[in-house]
Nucleic acid binder design. Sequence first.
RNA 1: GGAAGCGUGCCAGAGCGGCCGAAUGGGACACACUGCUAAUGUGUUGUGCUCGUCAAGGGCACCGAGGGUUCAAAUCCCUCCGCUUCCGCCA
Length: 420
Amino acid sequence: MIDLRIVRSDPEAVRASQLARGEDPSLVDRLLTADAQRRAAVASADELRAEQKSFGRTVGRASPEERPALLARGKELAGLVKQAEAREVSAEQELRGAHLAVPNVIEGAPPGGEQDFVVLEEIGTPPTFDFTPRDHLELGELLGAIDMERGAKVSGARFYFLRGVGAQLQFALLNLAMQTAIGNGFVPMVPPVLVKPESMEGTGFLGAHADEIYRLEADDLYLVGTSEVPLAAYHSGEIIDLAGGPARYVGWSSCFRREAGSYGKDTRGIIRVHQFDKVEMFSYCRPEDAEAEHLRLREFEQQMLAAIEVPYRVIDVAAGDLGSSAARKYDCEAWVPSQQAYRELTSTSNCTTFQARRLGVRYRGEDGKPQTAATLNGTLATTRWLVAILENHQQADGSVRVPEALRPGLGGREVLEPIR
RNA sequence: GGAAGCGUGCCAGAGCGGCCGAAUGGGACACACUGCUAAUGUGUUGUGCUCGUCAAGGGCACCGAGGGUUCAAAUCCCUCCGCUUCCGCCA
């Protein structure tokens, strides 16, 4: 939820943000109207409650004989208060609806849609092969590392087994990510992957992406699509201490996505799957520190990408392609030889105070007063990274060179060899 | 899964249907006193919404959450959530 004070004091800025996102600027006016109406409803209900309260006291002080005469007026007041409160509730609902309809105000994101990203950096050079490169699935099968067929047999399409060096490679990668984060002061976390509706809702994932999410109806729980959800909800409703700088967490979890509406897209291999593992960074900080923290998260992502030695580029995602919570988002996309294209490996979003406001995460400012915190998140490694590692480091015989940083996690192996 | 109990402010812990935003103790903070520390004294010690110049200062709400009864509820009733204990079952 955006800050209503900004809507009141500078509605034009919010309208401009809406336009940059390609969304309806008139939602801002609906919000302003709803805000004014709610305040009027609160004022009149407060007034009636005050009257009822003081009248109630006189009833309490009255003698038993005069009390019955007063009860009629008391009943009347109770009825009026009830009506006023009903108006208050409906005004609040209208406001909430209008409030939730407005996404975060962008901060520096380029205007436009999905294609309007700006490339900030290109690191490394796409490899050239003097043989026909294999795609990651072919390599994975040669190495005995990825088994899609049995994944489908056991669980259906878009499921897979990582086995042998595939499983080990993922452990090596995710462990390296955890170590990198821990070394930079992040608190390691293994969060729950099933969460309550309010946690899902609070983090903003039940809006436009509701059909992306697995729901366990019998228990009214949701499977998270990223550990951002439990990590963001971790401090919900709390006033946290940010005096010593940002509170940083790094979560390792499985992530679950229904991939509804992506039929036929990336059906081969492990690029787009229903379940994968991810190491995710999450920061809570003061709003004034958020932009710098965002760049720091990006830096950590780039350190990881450097460690796996693949070419990649950094893009500044366009306003229209941001999630509703994000004010700005940077993606790192690795080169995938079999597709001759860059594919997203990391994504870091600055949600400013948008997400924390809904979750009720605050900190104490200089004056000791509670203020809404800012939240940020960023990817440090995922199962998809295996695609880039396998394809970029493949050799003519189907073997794959192991980037140095991952060797310790693979028992020192320098090359993964085909198993037959 | 069954049974019982509990859920109050930073913590501990009272609380009769009206005089409770809430006793008391501890902690923390400020000031005073003290050569320093300690001790002592006095004061402060929540959050949200709202009116007001995001002032001074008002008003309303909040005692796990949500409903209900009542002129009036922390206090009575219902539902849910969480915690504890016991029984059963089982990785």
